[in-house]
Design a protein around this nucleic acid. Structure first.
Length: 808
RNA sequence: GCCGGAGUGUUGGAAUUGGUAGACAAGGUGGACUCAAAAUCCAUUGCCCUCCAGGGCGUGCGGGUUCGAGUCCCGCCUCCGGCACCA
């Protein structure tokens, strides 16, 4: 008979809520553990990725609680954002109603997993209680010059009708909807994350409990290059432009210069000349083609401006070209071109018949392409003979002495574009006054409430702009007529500080109390998907540093340990609602129960790996739980009060080994091997009962099984704990210790190899000496046959595990 | 192209420090129980040779180090992820 999971799961979910075991307060006398799963977007229904996430999270919540930590485990909702708005457009219901209904539904489903949270701290980004602090935060950044509005070429998604941050453009396509992104010049709000580029990059070194993969991705994204910037004078006219290079040592090999089509100096260079028309046509063409096409590596095109620039190192005149392989968004938008040492410049020079001068001696026989490696400088006057690094330092010093250039570090990272032309987001608390400019909404007028509207459809500007009663206001500075900002904030702003709000979620007076934050922060364990490696995880680091600098957050890094779970795939694609390949957890909760589902997620493979969903697997973990149930309930056999014997000592040793294995495996996130340890132990315990169990031993073995299984399968273990006469709440019991003497094996298998192949095995005393082991091995009839006529040349002993006999 | 990571039975995977490859499951096969089925239990299940006993082969490919290599080194192949006309 299998157990009634429906009944006991509901029962214990209620009991845990009543007990309040997971409702916690800051307590400086107790060690804390802040355990956090990335708060979900309320899509309405859990998918397997959520289940996996919350199963890992809840395991750690329960485990660390049992280990005596004061564990903070909160839950909330990333509830602003496009999907709610798009749903509203099609259903005509208000996004708030939709969102809140979905939150309620998801909260219920999370509770049905048996995952425990301090629900008193629940938050949702779309609540004015929350987003007023988004706005407050925005104003702090504005005051510090870290939030600014500027016109710039930005990414525009024609489908979602809004701008996007660089991080939200994947291979030239919108991260959300996949539409091809185009460039538009628009005036937008930015956060000056580039001011923090260096710290964000350097501090990655401190994140030694983050996956290397994520650290590498962030390093790549921030992308530091060190080099020099110097000024090039245009010959025969009063104009100049700056270039940035990482290879200043190759300056004597410069045979042309290139400016990006968008570069402002182009106008000055060609105005009124006979190439003006040709250059303008080229500029227009470059502007028209999409980012995708432009980035596609291929034939390099460009136009000669008819002008020359002066190489400051040797006063040579070099032709200036306009070419779109130079990007306005990086460095200075202009380069010195050194075809001898750069393949792109080589390609361009070859096509347009420009001179190529090598300034680094390539290895013998190297020809036909640019040489980018190290070597002695040649054709470079005072640099000749120096290796690359030495030559770089020398030329930068020289440029500085000549006052034409300096050492400079460039970052690939761009400022974070945070305004969105959409409705369902946090209003930006700025008033635009014809006299005073951009004026912050005074703090006591926060929050700027998101008004209700009738028409959510995107029209290329924020739907709020169609609401005169929202837009028309008075300037807080001068009292004159003014207009509100109508864009809303990127939802990644909401999620960049929510973990701090959880430490003091009900505070109506401040964003959070620094005392609470300093007790709970940093998040000791953060769990979520790797897809946020350069989005949320970078923004959250940035905002935490800003709050640190303001004296609000004691920590500089928000997440001490990061765990990125693998994706669940089905039929070769990520399991997601949009792909229509979801196997819903709800049916499985009904058919197999939360414990079996949780156990399966733990069991099916390494938590960091992507996994293919296999519906059959869950039968295995459900069967295991049935076996545990029958064993503890006495269906296998009833123990008696007989005398203690070897079998009792052995099964207790097995129990302690299981405790050790589960503890060590949880500590190294090897949940997929912790579960089998308990399966193996349960099988051993079953055999022990069949052979005739002793009451006292059996009861202790079952206690250890239930204690260690409880963070993985909490409901069934709680029920059995109660059924076996315990009046305490299992979740509040201390995590068991193992006895180091008991776990050591007295008898082990000694493997005997001949020439490295296993030929015999013996059960031997674990304390066996090398001599004894060798004697045993050489006395074996089987081994003697394998040695045969051969001569024993060497015997390698690793007692008590192995003896290897080398025969010639 | 550069930077990460991975390749093990039919499948998911295990092997934590160089020491019994395939734990634990899933699936398959055979059996017990049953009028029958489900559930449960038992046996078996890497490939090849063999009546058995036993033997040979085997962790993507090719080399190497070692008494001994899934694990370390060198050179490849394939797949996954990131970055990429970033000067």
């Amino acid at each position: 008979m299998s157990y009634d999971h429906q009944k006991i799961e509901a029962k214990w979910q209620e009991r845990w809520a009543e007990a309040g075991t997971f409702e916690v307060e800051a307590d400086p006398d107790r060690p804390k553990f802040y355990n956090l799963c990335m708060y979900p977007y309320p899509s309405g229904s859990l998918h397997q990725g959520h289940v996996r996430n919350y199963t890992f999270g809840d395991l750690l919540t329960r485990y660390n609680t049992m280990r005596g930590f004061n564990v903070l485990s909160p839950m909330g909702w990333d509830s602003f954002g496009l999907p709610a708005e798009n749903a509203a457009i099609s259903t005509r219901a208000h996004p708030r109603e939709n969102t809140e209904a979905q939150i309620n539904q998801m909260r219920d489903q999370i509770k049905r997993l048996g995952a425990m949270y301090d629900w008193r701290r629940e938050l949702a980004s779309h609540h004015p209680d929350y987003y007023r602090w988004d706005q407050w935060l925005f104003l702090q950044l504005f005051d510090q010059g870290l939030a600014y509005k500027a016109e710039a070429p930005v990414n525009w998604c024609p489908n979602d009708q809004t701008v996007l941050a660089n991080e939200q453009v994947i291979d030239g396509h919108c991260e959300r909807c996949g539409a091809e992104v185009i460039r538009r010049n628009l005036s937008q709000w930015f956060f000056r994350i580039t001011d923090y580029a260096e710290r964000l990059l350097d501090d990655i070194d401190k994140l030694d409990h983050w996956p290397d993969r994520v650290r590498t991705m962030q390093r790549n994204w921030i992308g530091r290059s060190e080099g020099a910037r110097f000024t090039m004078q245009v010959a025969d006219m009063d104009a100049s432009f700056d270039v940035f290079t990482t290879r200043p040592d190759t300056i004597f090999g410069m045979t042309f210069a290139v400016v990006s089509p968008e570069h402002p100096v182009v106008e000055t260079l060609v105005q009124g000349t006979d190439v003006e028309d040709e250059v303008r046509v080229y500029q227009q063409k470059a502007a028209r083609i999409s980012e995708v096409e432009r980035l596609a590596e291929g034939d390099k095109t460009g136009v000669f401006t008819g002008r020359y620039a002066i190489n400051p190192a040797n006063q040579q005149r070099v032709p200036i070209y306009v070419a779109d392989y130079v990007l306005m968004g990086y460095g200075t938008g202009a380069i010195m071109a050194v075809p001898g040492q750069d393949q792109r410049d080589w390609d361009f020079a070859s096509k347009y018949g420009i001179d190529i001068i090598r300034t680094v001696e390539p290895p013998a026989g190297f020809e036909g392409e640019a040489y980018v490696g190290d070597g002695p400088a040649i054709n470079s006057e005072f640099l000749d003979g120096l290796e690359m690094e030495a030559a770089k330092s020398r030329i930068i010093d020289w440029l500085e002495e000549q006052r034409v250039g300096r050492r400079e570090t460039q970052y690939r990272l761009r400022d974070w574009l945070i305004s969105r032309q959409r409705y369902w987001g946090c209003p930006i608390p700025i008033v635009s006054c014809p006299d005073c400019g951009y004026v912050p909404v005074p703090e006591d007028q926060l929050p700027v409430m998101l008004p209700d509207i009738q028409d959510y459809a995107p029209k290329g500007r924020s739907p709020l702009a169609a609401l005169p009663e929202f837009v028309e206001t008075i300037c807080p500075a001068c009292g004159g007529p003014a207009q509100r900002e109508t864009d809303t904030m990127d939802t990644f702003v909401d999620s960049s500080w929510y973990f701090l709000r959880f430490t003091d979620a009900r505070n109506d007076d401040r964003i959070f109390d620094p005392k609470d934050a300093s007790y709970w922060m940093p998040v000791d364990q953060y769990i979520g998907g790797v897809e946020h490696a350069v989005l949320h995880l970078l923004y959250a680091r940035f905002i935490t540093k800003v709050l640190h600098d303001m004296g609000l957050a004691a920590v500089e890094e928000p997440f001490a340990r990061l765990f990125t779970q693998g994706m669940i795939t089905l039929g070769g694609a990520k399991m997601s609602k949009s792909k229509g390949n979801v196997v819903g957890p709800l049916e499985l909760l009904a058919s197999h129960g939360a414990d079996a589902l949780r156990l399966y997620h733990l069991f099916m493979g390494p938590p960091t790996d992507d996994t293919v969903w296999d519906q059959n697997g869950i039968d295995g973990t459900a069967r295991f739980l049935d076996r545990v149930w029958r064993l503890v309930a006495g269906d296998v056999g009833e123990p008696t009060d007989r005398e203690e014997d070897d079998a009792d000592r052995e099964i207790l040793a097995e129990a302690h080994r299981a405790v050790r294995k589960v503890t060590e495996d949880i500590d190294r996130f090897a949940f997929n091997t912790a579960v089998p340890a308990l399966m193996t132990f349960t099988n051993a315990l079953t055999d022990y009962v069949r052979a005739g169990a002793r009451r006292e031993t059996f009861d202790r073995a079952v206690e250890l099984l239930l204690l260690t299984l409880s963070p993985m399968a909490p409901h069934i273990t709680h029920e059995l704990w109660e059924m076996t006469g315990h009046s305490t709440l299992l979740a509040s019991e201390p995590w068991p210790e193992w006895d180091p003497d008991l776990v050591e094996r007295e008898v082990v298998t000694l493997v005997v190899q001949v020439n490295g192949k296993v030929r015999d095995r013996f059960e031997v005393d674990a304390s066996i000496e090398a001599e004894e082991a060798e004697r045993l091995a050489l006395d074996s009839e089987r081994i003697r046959q394998w040695i045969g006529e051969g001569e024993v040349q060497r015997v390698v002993s690793r007692p008590p595990r192995l003896v290897n006999i080398v025969v010639g």
